[in-house]
Design a protein around this nucleic acid. Structure first.
Length: 471
RNA sequence: GGUGCCGUACCCAAGCGGUAAGGGACAGGUCUGCAAAACCUCUAUGCAUCGGUUCGAUUCCGAUCGGCACCUCCA
């Protein structure tokens, strides 16, 4: 079954055809590790993970590369802002290297908790400065650069196709450009490849280069590292939608100017997660991380389920109500799966009905990653009375290859419930059990009310009375 | 100013030319001493408004109204 993907370059859904029949080469823009990732950032990694899993499910091998930006991109407007890593280091009193290491670990903790498959290659910008320098030299040789004010710039006028991805109108840009503080630029859209002249003095991270001691520009690392690990022409490059007009536009310019040919075939971009006030941001507003969610009693899979419920190219509005909905639905789903696991082993092969649900699932997800529709197929499968538990389980596992909710490693819901160790509550439960045995239901109900007031819920199940803390 | 997106039931959210997926919530039911949980059933003659194209439009085109994002480190 063919996979169709929306390519930002053509602004249309295209049938995916890899360069090589076997291995799909995919590069994803990774985190800048100067702070925790917020759940909006994490949405994009889930989208990329679904993309990767879909390719794997379709039978491709995938080489997935992701960068870790541990050279601070700058904070301010234009090329003269303060280095983010520097700022973070200064504020916390740690070295920039410590900061980078700390947040890289924190990032992967969240990444793993969300069941994202690790990239095959994770590459740090600071390990590849030599590759960046080599690429800049190549551009220099091709006449695409100029030095001004101590910095090396990329001249977009040497690359006629500049701005195609973002559909920028260059004439428009030139006349309507904002006030540009950098007088060194020949064209306001030119960008820095190598800095030796920082407005903010000595940086902690500096390297020697043919142009003097300094540090790389913001975009060059992705070009240098992706080409190093995936070659000069590869299949997929993805990231957040905000990367289109500047970051990816500049990456394309410098990469294709260097090689003289097409760099990437498919450009995929994930939409933003919004909150009440608009987009989530590290620099303003509420800073929601995965650990904030888990501290409020949500499972990382609640968040993944929530994200899977919206299409990756649509803005999705975060709310606590939406998280509650996701938690309930995911809980119901896990209960069904757990019940199936308790009663049957997954079937070796699928019958017609189960196969039909799987085919429908594949069709929907292969069509530009329509996970909301895929989830509907999963529910349809689970509610289909004509299918045996063993087949349901096998089919659900198949779907989970893409959904990544972790059905195979899941245990029953009881295990997730917090264990009550309050002696007073436990004593009350014991008294209630006695009261029930004596058919004194008035007392039993009274005790239930009392426990309720204490924040506990009592459930009588076939296996006995259970007590749990209310959320 | 430029680029792009959205407005579908109480809420979230698919569908994008052939007569409205799914989840949550609500309600009813089965079960239960009662509850809870679970399971079953039900919930839009309708897809912002007004025109147009079409045998047929939620889906295409135009206008209007109302939201939003990106263009600045940002997923």
């Amino acid at each position: 079954m063919p996979i169709s993907l929306y390519n930002t370059m053509s602004r249309s859904v295209e049938q995916f055809k890899p360069i090589s029949d076997e291995t799909v080469k995919m590069y994803c823009c990774g985190p800048t590790v100067y702070n925790y990732a917020h759940i909006g950032n994490l949405r994009t990694y889930i989208f990329e993970d679904v993309l990767k899993r879909t390719l794997l499910h379709a039978g491709y091998k995938v080489t997935h590369v992701m960068n870790i930006t541990d050279v601070g991109h700058l904070t301010g407007d234009g090329d003269d802002g303060e280095d983010k890593m520097e700022k973070s280091a200064r504020e916390s009193g740690k070295s920039v290297w410590d900061i980078a290491r700390f947040y890289t670990e924190a990032f992967f903790k969240d990444f793993d908790a969300l069941h994202n498959l690790r990239p095959d290659i994770t590459c740090k910008a600071t390990d590849h400065v030599a590759d960046m320098i080599a690429l800049i030299q190549r551009l220099e040789k091709g006449g695409h650069t100029y030095v001004a004010g101590g910095n090396v710039y990329f001249s977009i006028d040497t690359f006629p196709d500049y701005g195609r991805l973002a559909r920028l109108d260059l004439n428009e840009l030139r006349s309507g450009a904002r006030i540009d503080v950098d007088d060194n630029k020949r064209n306001p859209k030119d960008f820095v490849l190598w800095f030796t002249n920082s407005k903010f003095g000595e940086q902690a991270m500096m390297w020697d280069s043919p142009w003097g001691r300094g540090y790389p520009g913001w975009h060059i690392e992705c070009s240098a590292m992706s080409m190093k690990y995936l070659g000069e022409h590869f299949d997929i490059h993805c990231g957040g939608i905000d990367a289109i007009p500047i970051h990816h536009t500049n990456e394309i310019a410098q990469s294709e100017a260097a090689t003289g040919h097409t760099w990437v075939n498919y450009w995929l971009h994930g939409e933003f997660l919004l909150n009440d006030t608009g987009k989530m941001s590290k620099s303003s507003g509420e800073f929601l991380t995965l650990s904030v969610l888990t501290s409020k009693g949500y499972d990382p899979m609640d968040y993944r389920f929530f994200i899977l419920g919206g299409h990756y190219r649509s803005q999705l509005k975060f709310s606590w109500q939406a998280m509650d909905t996701a938690r309930t639905a995911r809980g119901n789903l896990f209960d069904r799966i757990a019940a199936l696991k308790a009663g049957a082993a997954p079937a070796k092969s699928l019958g017609e009905a189960a196969s039909r649900w799987c085919a429908s699932f594949d069709e929907h997800v292969f069509n530009d990653l329509n996970t909301p529709r895929g989830l509907a197929d999963l529910w349809g499968l689970l509610k289909d009375d004509t299918i045996s538990p063993a087949e349901k389980l096998a089919a659900a596992y198949r779907m989970d290859t893409i959904l990544g909710l972790g059905f195979e490693s899941l245990s029953a819901r009881q295990a997730e419930e917090s264990i009550v160790d309050d002696p007073e509550a436990l004593a009350l439960v014991a008294r209630r059990v006695e009261a029930k045995k004596a058919r004194d239901y008035a007392l039993a109900d009274e005790i239930r009310d009392k426990l309720d007031a204490m924040g506990y819920a009592v459930k009588d199940t076939p296996d006995g009375t259970r007590l749990m803390k209310k959320m």
